[in-house]
Amino acid sequence: MRTDIIEIRWHGRGGQGAITAAKIVANGAFASGFKGVVMAPTFGTERRGAPVFVSLKISKNKIYDLSPITAPDMVVVLDHTLLDEVDVIAGLKENGLVILNAPKPLSEYSFGGAKIAVSDVTKHAVEAGLPPGIVNSGIIGAFSQATGLVNIDVMVTAIENEFTGKRPEMNSKAAKIVFENTAVGGYI
């Protein structure tokens, strides 16, 4: 299969903004030269609070296969309580990466040898001035730090464009604080 496509699966809860987060990363990636960007939410069954996932594929070339991701290169988890409900690493490729919003330190987590990045996004978002529970802007800072795929400055612009009229500076500040406070482990 094509090896030029990076597949990123986002896990969140309905209403938590996983789609918006993936859309912001899609915009940041596109602005960074990834001309192929495809983002597909869970189709048809979103409910507030229920686990949802979003597929984001990025490539330097146009992407033709829009089917959901089954073997992600990386997964992003917006809510650590999902770990008890969802097998977030299902299908994760060897040398995969897990980016996690969680209150505990990196050493507390293990995902079958995958590289792990952890930040307490929930806490840092409040530090940025956002109401408790808004994590979909902050998590992008962790994504930028852990993957290096899209520069944090590009992400900040993408965040402020998306949140026009909805606390753009606080949202981008959350991402910047998280970017500086993301612990990235190695392969185990």
Partner: peptide, 10 residues
């Protein structure tokens, strides 16, 4: 439906 209607792309 969904495959194009709800998928985001440039």
């Amino acid at each position: 439906g969904y495959i194009l209607s709800h998928t985001y792309m440039p």
